[in-house]
């Protein structure tokens, strides 16, 4: 439904929690992309060591996942963190940071909605945070 009442400047203020969320997303996105690009450029240029060298990768990126993991001796879950000195693993950290941006935004909403006692919105935020934490921590939907 759309209607067209007279509007004033004060009518055109966006909800502060929405603006705060936008700010978190903007900064989180920049951080994730920066880490991802630094790692990947270091990987491609050879400035950083490679966990899986590009030449090897070309030969195995069409393999099914279990075979790929076996051939590269890769672990699932958070095991990759021990190889952070490698460019490709650093790029993976950047990708993981992008996966954490929503969580950062929702933590802000958790505080805002709690402070404003907006219980319905706060409840949705709590459930979403719980889901993201459980799945990111590999406690549900786990890869072994």
């Amino acid at each position: 439904m759309v209607n067209k009442p007279q509007s004033t400047d004060s009518d055109l203020r966006v909800d502060p929690e929405q603006l705060g969320y936008a700010q978190v997303v903007a900064w989180g996105n920049r951080l994730g992309v920066a880490v991802m690009l630094v790692g990947f450029i270091g990987y491609l240029s050879g400035l950083l060591p490679a966990r899986i060298p590009p030449d090897t990768l070309l030969e195995i990126w069409s393999l099914p996942l279990p075979e790929f993991l076996a051939q590269t001796h890769s672990s699932t879950g958070w095991g990759w963190l021990q190889y952070l000195e490698n460019g490709d693993t650093l790029a993976l950290l950047g990708i993981a940071l992008l996966g954490g941006v929503t969580l950062a935004g929702y933590l802000l909403l958790f505080v805002r909605f709690l402070g404003e006692r907006k219980w319905r919105q706060w409840s949705m935020v709590v459930v979403e945070i719980t889901l993201v934490v459980l799945v990111a921590a590999n406690w549900i939907g786990a890869g072994h």
Binding site: L65, A91, I95, V132, G141
Partner: peptide, 20 residues
Amino acid sequence: DTTAAWVYFNHGAVLPALVV
């Protein structure tokens, strides 16, 4: 997509050379 993306990530199905 955050939750499903983490499932694939934790299974090792995220390849930086494809994603970046």
